[in-house]
Design a protein around this nucleic acid. Structure first.
Lengths: 106, 106
DNA sequence: AATTTGCGAAACCGAATGATTGCGCTTATA
DNA sequence: TATAAGCGCAATCATTCGGTTTCGCAAATT
């Protein structure tokens, strides 16, 4: 069973849950109310999110509050960092320079 | 068939392919040499990456060079942006302040 | 002209995924 | 104390996923 952040955020419902509890921890029931699936389905998502440390839980009586572990999200950002140079246009600029040189040659 | 960036980068092989062609476009055969899977399997991955616009192709005779579309990666970054505040520690600092207040009360 | 090379598409297969349903446990409420 | 509420877990099921194998086609090579 693969359990990494990338697989966790692949599911749209899971991304919605992450967003939902990002700034306020919530119980499974409260989360489930925001979607048209069962509480058990949400519970399963929360288990996956917990298993890859994207989410922490805090028990309070019979209720369990789930909270986002923001730090873990950094992993995705770290991976993305490798490509940031590309989309920030530096490589496009390089392309332009090369094209210009080509054109001058003609 | 869901075809979005998040689902595309969920697979580790696909992430490796993305990294591989990020700075130099490559043919399916050349890519396949870097993994222990068949060219056809790589082709399937490239199809998925193409379908969600993460990858562009350029034909040259019978060879097809695949190239990363860096811009598309921005979508992930954009989604991540929502959480950046959290892991950058501002919320953790808030937590610390609250804990300190609690301790002082005791 | 015959053969090899590079490629995508289709058929197939076992494993994983996401959802539902039924269950049992613990905690709160009547 | 009996009942209800909140939760996780296990079984089940249809669907998707990632891989291989086989095939056909166009472009190179001989």
């Amino acid at each position: 069973m693969r359990r990494d952040v990338f697989q966790a955020i692949a599911d749209p419902t899971r991304r919605a849950i992450i967003l939902l509890i990002a700034f306020q921890s919530m119980t499974p029931n409260a989360i489930a109310e925001h979607f048209d699936t069962s509480r058990q389905a949400v519970s399963k998502h929360l288990r996956i999110l917990t298993e890859c440390n994207l989410v922490k839980q805090e028990q309070s009586g019979r209720e369990i509050y789930y909270q986002l572990n923001g730090t873990k999200m950094k992993e995705v950002d770290k991976w993305l960092e490798q490509f940031r140079k590309i989309w920030e246009g530096r490589f496009n600029e390089l392309d332009n320079i090369l094209s210009n040189l080509k054109n001058k040659k003609k």
